[in-house]
Simulated scan of single mutants.
Amino acid sequence: MDPARLSLNQITVNSLGLPETLDACVRHDVGAVALWRDKIAAVGLDRAGGLVADSGVHVSSVCRGGMFTTGDPADVRADNRAAVDEAAALGADALVLVCGPLTDRDLAAARGRVRDGIADLLPYARDRGVPLAVEPLHPMMIAERSVVVTLRQALDLCDDLGDGVGVVVDAYHVWWDPDLDAQLARAHGRVRGYHVSDWLPRTTDLLLDRGMMGDGVIDLPRLSGLVAAAGYDGPVEVEILSSRWWAEDPDDVVRTARKRFEEFV
């Protein structure tokens, strides 16, 4: 894929703070970055905005809002509004929503809380010009992170809630789905982000063993073609949660990610 579309998701170089991540993007000619809220909070939103502006690096997304199924509803509402404010201040293309785990065995009720939470947040996000992007996660994450586990479910929410809500297509989470081709065709015009990594044949950790592109079993070129056919031509985030890659020198990680992005995405 054209390296001009590469965005470095901050979690890929998790040892770096926000200033260092932006410096790495500039050194390696990476034009976009996806920022995590804990890294923004570490420097403060005002300073984060200044650092982003000075770097000239575009913010492809802010991660994350959501988690609608956990905690006090008033706190969840306030936190999601703060996430929208952060995305707006940083000029992000979208706020990624990781919708929240199953907490009490009532899956239908949990999904209802997700729907209601997004519906409540949507007018606030629209007013601030921030697209919301529902990211379906692999079903193995249902008890810890999200009850939205297929692209079909995410698009059902989009159909229900209307303008201002789209989807994130994360290769790691959706590649296995036998309904993926049809759902990507259905997603035309509603893809707000595309994340790439690889699924290792002998994955050792449900969260922290994603592979570098080309090291696993995902047919990334084919998936990229389907995402392009769905009308998405924006930044493509390399998002690798990996204890192995986190132990490497961050410059080597970015250098490798850029090379593999061109070769395998």
Rank of each mutant, 00 (worst) to 15 (best):
G189H: 01
T12S: 15
E86N: 00
V253S: 02
R128Q: 04
R64M: 13
W245N: 07
Y124G: 06
A109Q: 09
K39S: 14
A4M: 11
A187V: 01
G31L: 04
P19C: 04
P178D: 11
A48C: 07
L107A: 15
V30R: 04
G56T: 06
P73H: 08
A154T: 06
D156F: 11
H58S: 14
P73K: 02
Y194K: 01
T70M: 14
R27M: 10
G71L: 01
V168R: 01
L223P: 00
L97W: 05
D179H: 10
A89D: 00
L107Y: 13
V62P: 04
R190W: 04
A34C: 13
L107K: 12
G112F: 13
F68A: 02
R192Q: 11
D85W: 01
R192T: 08
D116S: 13
T69E: 04
D181A: 15
Y172S: 08
V174F: 06
L8R: 09
R126M: 10
H28D: 06
P139T: 02
E239K: 12
D179I: 04
D219P: 09
A53F: 03
D251R: 08
I118R: 08
A109H: 15
M1I: 14
M212L: 15
D23R: 10
L220H: 02
D116K: 11
A133M: 04
E262L: 13
D72P: 05
G164D: 11
S55V: 12
V52R: 00
A88Y: 02
G129L: 05
V149N: 15
A82F: 04
L207Q: 12
V169C: 00
D251W: 08
R5G: 07
L95C: 06
T21H: 03
C158V: 15
V227Q: 01
V76C: 12
L97K: 03
D177H: 01
G44P: 05
Y172L: 03
W175G: 07
L16Q: 00
E239A: 13
L22I: 02
M140V: 15
G112L: 08
D177Q: 01
L18V: 13
D160R: 10
A109S: 10
C25V: 06
I218H: 07
H195L: 14
L241E: 11
H188D: 11
D181E: 12
R111I: 09
A247D: 15
G162D: 01
N80F: 09
N80M: 09
A119F: 09
H173M: 00
W176A: 02
L157R: 08
R37D: 11
C99M: 10
H188V: 12
A24Y: 01
L208H: 14
D249K: 00
R186M: 07
P3W: 03
A32G: 12
L22Q: 00
A78N: 08
R202C: 12
G71S: 02
A78K: 10
P136E: 06
A109C: 05
D2G: 03
G65Y: 06
W175N: 03
V169I: 01
S243I: 13
L161W: 02
D23A: 15
G117P: 14
H58R: 15
G189L: 02
D23N: 05
M140H: 13
A230C: 07
R152Q: 14
R128K: 11
L102D: 12
P178V: 04
R113K: 14
A133H: 04
D85T: 00
A87E: 01
P101E: 09
C25E: 11
A53T: 08
V52G: 03
G56M: 05
D219N: 14
P139N: 04
C63N: 14
M1P: 15
